[in-house]
Design a protein around this nucleic acid. Sequence first.
DNA 1: TAGATTGTTAATCGATTAACAATC
DNA 2: TAGATTGTTAATCGATTAACAATC
Lengths: 210, 210
Amino acid sequence: MPNGIKVPMPTLERLANYLTIFSDLKIRNVETVSSADLESRAGINAAQFRKDLSYFGEFGRPGIGYNVNELQARISRILNLQKTQSVLLVGAGNLGAALAGYHPLRTENFQIVAAFDNNPNKIGKQLWDLTIQDIDEIISVNKVLQARIGIIAVPASAAQETAERLVSANVVNILNFAPTFIRIPSNVTVRHIDFLQELAVLSYYLPEDD
Amino acid sequence: MPNGIKVPMPTLERLANYLTIFSDLKIRNVETVSSADLESRAGINAAQFRKDLSYFGEFGRPGIGYNVNELQARISRILNLQKTQSVLLVGAGNLGAALAGYHPLRTENFQIVAAFDNNPNKIGKQLWDLTIQDIDEIISVNKVLQARIGIIAVPASAAQETAERLVSANVVNILNFAPTFIRIPSNVTVRHIDFLQELAVLSYYLPEDD
DNA sequence: TAGATTGTTAATCGATTAACAATC
DNA sequence: TAGATTGTTAATCGATTAACAATC
C-alpha cells in the first residue's frame, strides 16, 4: 500500500466483487480490459473502479487498460487471499453444515479447519470431512490450528457467548450469522450476515397491491 | 408515510435491526425507552435512531421516550412484516435446506412456501415439510401461491437463469445467495448475500504476523 | 415549574461522480 | 502523431452527527 491511509469500507466490499468478475473474464480468455469494458460487461461504475484501485497503487496503463491476470493477482494479495486462510466454525446445525460444505469457499482460498458445537449429541459426529468438537476445547484446539477467522452459526441466544469464546481462542475476525448484535473488543472485526434483515428490506419494497 | 420521499438504504437496513432490539426489550419487560437508553443498551446511535424514525412520522413523546410495543408494531408495519410473506426457494442443496429449516424466518413472518430444483434426483423428495418441485413448474405453481419474494440458492453458474425464471413467475424481490452478479429488470429489487465477499473483507483486516 | 427527551434543522463528514492532464 | 484510457483532483451528492427549539 503506497499511502498508509484509510480505505473506505464500500471500496473494500467492492474489491471482492471485482475478483469474481476477473475470474469470469479469465474463463472467457479476456486478457486486457478497460474500466469502460468492465462497466458495460459487469455493471460496475468505471470511475468508481479506478478510484477504488487508486487506494492501492497503479494497476493499468493509460490508453491500454488493465491486464486481467495482474489485476486478479494484486487484488487477491491485498485481501490476503493469496494463501489459504484457516477458519473456525462454531455451530454444527443446518447452517453450519451448509457453510462447511460450501465449495466456493475453497476456490477463494478459505478452509474451515474445525467445527465446534456444545450439543453432546453432535460432538464426535462427522460434518463432511470434519469431526465436530466440543466448544469447550476451542482454546486448546486453536493453539494448534492458529486460525484467525471464526464463523458464528449458532442461535441468537448463544451468539454473544460464542463470540467471547472465539476471542478467547485468539480469533480476531468474526463472521456472525446469528440474528443479533454482538459486543466484541475493539481489536476484533465483525461482519454480520443477517438473512432476516435482508428479507425485511426486500419486504419493504413489496408492491402494496392487496 | 407522511412525506412521500426517499428513505436512505442504510436507514432501511437499520430498521430491521431495531426490530430485533425491541423484541429483546419486550422479553425484559421494558415498556418505555429513550433513544439514549437504546444507545447505551444496544450500541446504536441515538441521533441516528431518531433521524431514521423521522422518515416515517413521529413515534415518541418529548420528555418521555418511546413505547416499545408501539415502536415494534409500527416499524413492523412499515416493513410489511405485519402479515406473513410467502417466499419461493430455488435450489434445494445444502444452503437451500438450511434456509428452509431456518426457524427465525417464521418468527419474523416469512414463510418459504415452495422449493424448486432442476435436479431430477431431488424433484419429488422432501425438504422438511416441502416437496421439492421441478423448476419448470415455477410459473404455474406461483400463479396459485402468489409469492412476491424469491431466494436464489443455486450455484453461481445457474444464478442468472434462476433470476429470470423467478421474474417470469412474477417475483419482484430477490435475495441472491449465489456469488455472482445478476441482471434483472429495473422493477425488481435484488439483495445480495455473499459469504465470500464478507470473508474477503475480514481477510483484509488480518494482522500480517507471518 | 424544572428536567428530560423528542423531532428537525443545520453543520460536518465521507463517498460517489465528473472532469481532465498525464501518458501509453 | 492521434486516439484511448489511466490515475487523480475537484465538484457533487448524500448520509451522519450535532445542536436546539418544541413539548411532554
